[in-house]
Design a protein around this nucleic acid. Structure first.
Lengths: 146, 146
DNA sequence: TTAGGTGCAAATTCTTTGCACCCTG
DNA sequence: CAGGGTGCAAAGAATTTGCACCTAA
């Protein structure tokens, strides 16, 4: 699946609502549209401001509730903090992370190869690279066992 | 630089304080020790609990202040949320991120090669891999220009 | 001695929740 | 019409800040 124009996304949204037999409210429609129309990974506040222009009565808590709902529906993904806190690490060597998607365990690992990945040329048009880090998502053995 | 035993880290801490002529307080010593002695990436609360056992009068806000100070000193690194909010993305395709270390801009990019990286065998001992994502840290052109 | 660090308590910021009313299917 | 969604206001959780006292160098 690749990047889609907004119309295709809106259509897919409609389809998913029908398929799963969930309510398609005005608010959900406008909130999804706000996320679907940008590549900027907006936060809840920015989405709220955007939706508000077309729907002045919308409330911030509905935006939050709807965003988590959209995530549960598999229509959007979430970046950055998700109920997790800032954490600290005294390991200063260049390393990568394995993150358990169930319990959140984060374990360091190192790899010469991953330290020097070749990046696609598209990167050249975004900015100057300083460092690359690989994040592996998976299930740790403790969680797999239980 | 590779992983170090705690004594080496404590020594380095002392050296850095002397070099930079900053005060080495009891609290800083114990808080750094708490981070240096584990590979678990503890959060502020957990560090606070640990330090508290040896120093019952320490306060949580000192823990926070000291952790940020340790980061400024280059003695620790920080994972997860750093004054940033949860963000949302309607792009469901497998993609990677370029993150500007100055302004926080996050841009998606895709790469067949990065989608299927070979991971080191050490991973086998941590858990079952689901997906890998590359995070490129750098400076975006807008920030580089100003 | 003194610049800067610390503890306390209160403030901020982001996000979530309880409840009565409203709307979609 | 019924069950779930919404707006409001208030609660919560994590982190930060102002201020008077204390301490390392």
């Amino acid at each position: 699946m690749s990047e889609q124009p907004i119309e295709a996304r809106m259509q897919r949204f409609k389809d998913v609502c029908r398929e799963k037999a969930v309510k398609l409210t005005h608010q959900r429609w406008e909130i999804y549209r706000e996320v679907a129309q940008t590549a900027e990974h907006p936060d809840a506040e920015r989405i709220f401001q955007g939706v508000r222009e077309r729907m002045p009565t919308v409330s911030l808590d509905t935006v939050y509730r709807t965003l988590w709902w959209l995530k549960d529906m598999g229509l959007i993904t979430v970046l950055g903090p998700t109920r997790e806190r800032t954490r600290f690490d005294a390991n200063l060597s260049h390393h990568h992370h394995f993150v358990c998607s169930l319990c959140g365990l984060t374990r360091d690992f190192s790899s010469e190869v991953l330290d020097h990945l070749e990046l696609p040329d598209t990167i050249q048009s975004i900015g100057q690279v300083q460092q690359t880090q690989v994040e592996v998502k998976g299930v740790c053995f403790d969680c797999a066992a239980s």
